[in-house]
Design a protein around this nucleic acid. Structure first.
Length: 213
DNA sequence: ATCCCGAGGG
DNA sequence: CCCTCTGGAT
């Protein structure tokens, strides 16, 4: 699709009214980072049940490091991969204390060097917590970018670059947030709900899907 | 049964 | 590129 179409697509999404989810629930960089690390292969609902007690016990990197994997584990037993995540969060908090003055670094390389943090997680933190021009490409956004024609690409990185390039800068934050919700609830993997998609008029995939009888 | 809002490792 | 780690939703 054309650059203008892409911008219209993203503008339509960004100006809609999203309900708050993980990325907007956690405002400070540290809790956001931890929440996103915990989110892999689980639902937001599950993560959001664990985090209140976890952050009450350890609000800062120093406290989290002191808590340790054994202390973190009991707080997050209900989410997938919790054992590995407990270790990662503990190690990550220690690294923040030892190498970054107890702060979350505003730097891609430093973020990706943390255990449990890959490019997607780093991009969420950079975009949401620090306002950087990045787009986090998870499986939803990857699918959406290709399916709709918004940002085609063979690899997540290609899709990411396409999105950043095509999205009007002032919309990057809202578009990023909305893309995640849109990919999850509307432009779904199995049954894309084009008939209730707010951006269908801008989408290549429109009408390729038959609504349920 | 099967699929996932990932990352790390072989 | 493939696999594994896990729990929850469908």
């Amino acid at each position: 699709m054309s650059r203008d179409q892409a911008a219209a697509f993203l503008r339509t999404l960004a100006t809609a009214n999203p309900k708050p989810e993980t990325e907007l629930l956690y405002r400070d960089p540290f809790s956001l980072l931890v929440a996103v690390v915990l989110s892999a292969q689980t639902t937001d609902a599950a993560v959001n049940k664990c985090t209140p007690s976890l952050f009450a016990a350890a609000p800062t990197p120093a406290a989290m490091a002191a808590l340790g994997a054994e202390g973190i584990g009991p707080h997050i037993r209900r989410i997938g991969l919790w054992q590995g995540k407990a270790r990662n969060v503990a190690a990550l908090a220690s690294l923040l204390v030892e190498q970054h003055g107890g702060e979350v670094p505003r730097d891609r390389a430093a973020l990706e060097a943390l255990p449990g943090v890959g490019r997607k997680t780093a991009n969420v933190v950079l975009n949401v917590a620090f306002g950087e021009n990045t787009m986090a490409v998870d499986t939803h956004i990857f699918r959406l970018g290709n399916r709709t024609g918004l940002a085609p690409g063979k690899t997540p990185r290609t899709v990411e670059d396409g999105l950043v390039k095509r999205c009007p800068p002032e919309l990057l934050r809202d578009a990023h947030h909305w893309l995640i919700l849109h990919g999850r609830y509307v432009c779904k993997a199995r049954l894309p709900a084009c008939w209730r998609c707010i951006a269908a008029t801008h989408c290549n995939y429109r009408d390729k899907v038959v609504p349920p009888a």
